[in-house]
């Protein structure tokens, strides 16, 4: 069978080729780098979401976490314009991880289904932004130049935002394929019973997945606010659904235990290319939504077909044991 990653790569290349016939400038290296950078927040969040989904959970609070952390960073910058960017980054990651840990603790210690927990915290985080900011915007002129400049600084032709995404892709690929913790994420989602017997704490593993997802959301929060140089209550509203969609298109099984870094990245890039290309070739953004939606359904249908033969083997096993 052809791997999910190669099918997606082929789909993206076909898409790019199609766009190039209408607007050749789109596939110029400079523009592709811009598209990648524009998709970087989606990639980063999709990678965090993937780890959560691997453990049979879901994190709907990522976009709200991003917005809350972003607002805190922006307000802090307004209050203390001299704060070094490194400290802001550390703060964003730490705060995001803390918010993610709240999700993780509720799932772990109270055994509440993650969809309910994160639906709740999503709303709480959004509400907190309003309470914190009083509904006010933090605008570009209130932010320091170093604060807004950092993600846009270009190194070797690619903005820092793009480089950060590359570092995180590499880090997660290494963690998931080579670390014992990465193995635990797959084991917990693949077969929680077997994981328990093998000495893996399922709840703790899920907690770590949420904390990681939160940390990445927090980091993206700062990057997002700095890049667009604005913070308000509703930034990245509904973005959590794009994140989940990127995972699903990338072949991350919602049932847990199956997925790859490559899949999540390509899933995000697929959505990113559509989002950036359609306006360029003059297609309405509503078509963009329809295409994204169709891609999700095609991806899920492909997943369930791939999973079906496995289901039969299990069933035979169960019957034998009557």
């Amino acid at each position: 069978m052809i791997s999910r990653e190669s099918i997606l790569s082929a789909a993206i290349i076909a898409l790019l080729a199609l766009i190039a016939t209408r607007f050749a400038g789109f596939v110029a290296p400079g523009n592709l780098a811009a598209v990648f950078t524009d998709t970087a927040p989606l990639i980063i969040l999709a990678l965090g979401q993937m780890v959560v989904i691997l453990t049979r959970c879901i994190d709907l609070s990522v976009a709200a976490n991003l917005a809350l952390t972003g607002m805190v960073c922006a307000m802090l910058n307004t209050a203390m314009p001299g704060l070094p960017v490194a400290l802001t980054l550390a703060l964003a990651i730490g705060m995001g991880a803390g918010l993610g840990a709240i999700n993780g603790l509720l799932v772990w210690k109270l055994a509440i289904p993650s969809i309910v927990v994160t639906l709740g915290t999503m709303t709480i985080f959004r509400g907190s932004i309003f309470l914190l900011s009083g509904g006010e915007w933090v605008n570009a002129f209130e932010m320091s130049a170093s604060f807004t400049g950092f993600p846009r600084t270009v190194i070797l032709g690619l903005p820092v935002l793009g480089w950060i995404a590359i570092v995180i892709i590499a880090g997660l690929a290494l963690m998931l394929s080579r670390s014992t913790q990465g193995r635990a994420f797959f084991a917990v989602g693949g077969n929680p019973h077997a994981a328990v017997y093998a000495g893996i704490d399922v709840g703790r593993t899920q907690f770590l997945a949420f904390t990681l997802s939160g940390a990445l959301a927090g980091l993206t929060g700062y990057l997002w606010v700095a890049r667009y140089a604005v913070a308000y209550t509703d930034i990245a509203g509904g973005f959590e659904l794009d994140v989940v969609a990127a995972c699903v298109i990338g072949g991350i099984s919602i049932a847990g235990g199956i997925g790859s870094v490559g899949g999540a990245v390509l899933g995000a890039l697929f959505l990113g290319v559509i989002k950036n290309a359609l306006p360029v070739v003059g297609i309405s953004p509503f078509w963009q939504m329809a295409i994204s939606g169709a891609a999700i359904i095609v991806a899920v249908a492909a997943n369930s077909r791939a999973g079906r033969s496995k289901g039969r083997i299990i069933l035979k096993q169960a019957e034998v044991r009557q």
Partner: peptide, 16 residues
């Protein structure tokens, strides 16, 4: 170590 009764369901991780 404990090898569970339902080795199909509780033993192996099929997608690994």
């Amino acid at each position: 170590v404990y090898v569970p009764e339902d080795r199909g369901k509780q033993g192996a991780i099929l997608d690994m």
